[in-house]
């Protein structure tokens, strides 16, 4: 069970949160103009990395805000958290 530092509420137990999959996948602005393959790329394709992964989490049982988490999936260490719309940390 992680401790996640919600960018709004501070450090809380993982049980207050839900994971929302890979971060920085933007919904296409004009889906109708995409081919089946392009749409499928957006809809289905997700990375599953051993190592540094960018993820979305939501503080379901707290402020209900979505935010991003950088997590090393090999040891579950959270390297950074940042708000939606903010740029991912570079290092």
């Amino acid at each position: 069970m992680f401790i996640i530092n919600c960018p709004y509420c501070g450090e809380r137990e993982q049980s207050e949160f839900k994971a929302g999959g890979e971060a920085h996948i933007v919904r296409p602005k004009q889906p109708t103009e995409l081919s089946d393959d392009e749409w499928a790329e957006y809809l289905f394709m997700r990375k599953n990395i051993k190592g540094i992964q960018f993820e979305r989490w939501v503080h379901t049982h707290g402020c209900r805000k979505w935010f991003n988490v950088v997590r090393d999936t090999s040891n579950d260490k959270i390297k950074a958290v940042y708000k939606m719309g903010e740029k991912p940390p570079t290092k």
């Binding site: 839900k18 929302g20 933007v26 919904r27 979305r56 939501v58 379901t60 209900r64 805000k65 979505w66 939606m84 719309g85």
Partner: peptide
């Protein structure tokens, strides 16, 4: 509610 909040906060802020 969770799904709608998700769209509002992340896709259509």
């Amino acid at each position: 509610l969770g799904k709608l909040e998700d769209y509002l906060q992340t896709e259509w802020p």
